[in-house]
């Protein structure tokens, strides 16, 4: 007669499809639960928000968008948060990709979506040529960033775009780039990436302008040494970074209310003060993709921890039983 299996032994032999089903349910159900969870933003995110809120209005921000939809959960949230801040502050930006040829179509879709959102809320849309320039793709990150660091006007010089009257003109004549002579004239250089292009940007551009990063959770640890050394002035990492940015857009950092009370106080960044984005453009969207996914993220992480704990307890119990037998 076969000895009856203990619950731990049964758990050790659980079918992987049951695990998959549990994960699928745990991740999808919270998507329908709109919850504004509390969060303490990372210092890196607060610094990034502070930098974005302090870019002078006459400066152009350079956005290098090197991600495609395989990392949409994180990177699209990053790009949306970044562009919402720039659009609300009416800061001009130039956007391009330095790695993947699919990336331009992906960021174009994001800009299109944000413009539709703005129009639906009665806000002025961002227009190509006047407010932003889309330069498409440069397929060689190393050479492109080297060239941007050396002479940005020579690199962008041959690129053309339709102006407000539909005429094809050199992008350097646009209001976005007309005042940019060198990369040091940029208000901020932000790399939104899911790959190591941030490393190349640090090697080629840091020291010449302020460099910030918005990366996936996997890439984020590799940005931290550059943040500690001051080569990267602010960074948002992973889905937590998306939610941090949305939380900061809604609440600001260490804002003093009219009553003198400090709202959204963060002792780790006591010296930093930045107003919420809604103070500048009340109708702008703050909580969006990050909020939608954050509860699912909680569920996935908790499930992962439970899986490790249960797996180890099962192993321990089975070993103990074997020794006893």
């Amino acid at each position: 007669m076969t000895p009856q299996k203990s619950i731990w032994e049964k758990l050790q032999e659980i079918d992987r499809r049951i695990l998959y089903l549990i994960l699928a349910i745990a991740v999808t159900v919270p998507l329908w639960i709109p919850a504004k969870l509390p969060v303490i933003p990372d210092s890196t995110s607060m610094d990034l928000y502070g930098q974005l809120m302090s870019v002078p209005e006459d400066k152009t921000v350079f956005v290098q968008s090197d991600w495609t939809v395989s990392t949409r959960g994180e990177s699209q949230g990053h790009l949306e948060a970044l562009l919402r801040i720039l659009m609300a502050r009416r800061i001009k930006f130039v956007i391009y990709a330095a790695a993947d040829p699919q990336a331009p179509q992906v960021f174009r879709n994001v800009i299109l979506g944000l413009n539709q959102e703005r129009e639906a809320r009665g806000l002025p849309p961002y227009r190509q040529w006047e407010d932003y320039i889309d330069l498409g793709a440069f397929l060689n990150a190393e050479g492109t960033l080297n060239s941007i660091g050396q002479d940005v006007r020579k690199l962008f010089g041959p690129r053309r775009s339709a102006d407000t009257e539909g005429r094809e003109r050199p992008v350097l004549e646009s209001p976005v780039l007309s005042r940019v002579q060198k990369i040091g004239d940029a208000g901020l250089y932000v790399v939104v990436t899911a790959s190591a292009t941030i490393d190349v940007a640090v090697q080629r551009i840091s020291g010449k302008t302020k460099l910030a990063a918005m990366t996936t959770g996997v890439v984020f640890p590799s940005v931290l040494p550059f943040y500690q050394s001051g080569q990267v002035v602010g960074a948002a990492g992973g889905l937590k970074g998306v939610y941090d940015m949305e939380f900061l857009m809604a609440n600001g950092v260490n804002v003093v209310s009219p009553t003198g009370k400090v709202e959204a106080q963060f002792p780790a960044k006591a010296e930093l003060t930045a107003p919420p984005l809604t103070e500048i453009e009340p109708k702008t969207v703050t909580f969006a993709r990050g909020q939608r996914y954050f509860l699912s993220f909680h569920a996935a992480i908790v499930l992962l921890i439970i899986a490790v704990v249960v797996g180890n307890i099962g192993m321990y119990k089975m070993r103990k039983n074997r020794r006893g037998a």
Binding site: Y20, S70, L304, G311
Partner: peptide, 22 residues
């Protein structure tokens, strides 16, 4: 593309349950 990438989560969970042993 996104669906393919998200499948990694299932393998991570399975690996965490079966392989991550102290």
């Amino acid at each position: 593309d996104a669906a393919m990438f998200s499948m990694i989560a299932f393998f991570i969970l399975s690996a965490a349950y079966r392989a991550f042993r102290i």
